[in-house]
């Protein structure tokens, strides 16, 4: 198995295949990124931050063209994070405890796997979907799932670690790491490569750059 393309988004920068693509100035960095990518998808504004990050990440990855070449059933989606939908959960609780009424459009985003649904809708991907929760970015978990997909005959998987958490002081911790994996290559392990990419991208996308 082999990483064909990868990208990382944080509130500070967007990294594509090892290179910083944009840096963000705006507090609403997701909207800034949307405009920088010249995306025209009005539904975007109605999404939660997890879905927004996933949608933007795929647009970035698409610059490599690989993602346009798949049949509708071919691409398997394997996504994970550590905080499930905590960010939207907090907003939904606020809608009925402080604002007045439980908000239906917030409630539908109180599940982390909605982001894979949003990707499937935008790109007409009907393939297998899994959403997992891990205490931290877990390369072994992805490697296991990739191996299973390969054994069941899949050729490519789009994997992602997309997380958004509201901290106690109200600040957000957000990151989105997507990687497209080809399963027909010889290497049977991918953990080390993923670990190295994740570390490097995290470093490249911090404030200091």
């Amino acid at each position: 198995m082999k990483v064909l393309a990868s990208c990382f988004l944080s509130p500070f920068a967007a990294v594509l295949n090892g290179t910083v693509k944009f840096q963000f100035q705006d507090d609403n960095w997701l909207k800034e990124c949307y405009h920088k990518l010249m995306l025209d998808y009005p539904k975007f504004y109605k999404m939660d931050d997890l879905s927004k990050m996933a949608i933007l990440s795929v647009e970035l990855l698409k610059e490599n063209a690989y993602l346009n070449n798949f049949n509708k059933d071919e691409l398997e989606l394997i996504f994970a994070n550590s905080n499930a939908s905590q960010h939207t959960d907090v907003k939904f609780i606020d809608s009925y405890t402080n604002i007045g009424n439980p908000s239906p459009s917030l409630f539908v985003y109180t599940l982390p796997n909605i982001l894979t649904g949003e990707l499937a809708i935008k790109h007409k991907w009907y393939g297998e979907n899994t959403f997992l929760i891990a205490s931290k970015f877990d390369t072994q978990l992805f490697e296991n799932k990739l191996k299973h997909a390969q054994m069941k005959g899949a050729k490519h998987c789009l994997c992602g670690w997309v997380d958004s958490k509201v901290e106690k002081n109200g600040t957000l911790t957000q990151e989105s790491f997507l990687f497209l994996v080809a399963l027909n290559e010889e290497n049977s392990t991918i953990s080390e490569e993923l670990e190295a990419l994740f570390k490097k991208y995290k470093y490249l996308s911090t404030e200091k750059v």
């Binding site: 796997n113 899994t130 959403f131 877990d138 054994m151």
Partner: peptide
């Protein structure tokens, strides 16, 4: 062992059983 957590809305249970089988067959 690290607990594997599947959170896939209402299809989580069936996904978890399919995933369990994969772990037995291929891990």
């Amino acid at each position: 062992n690290e607990l594997i957590i599947v959170s896939n809305a209402c299809i989580s249970g069936v996904i978890a059983l399919n995933t369990a089988t994969d772990f037995l067959r291929y891990s």
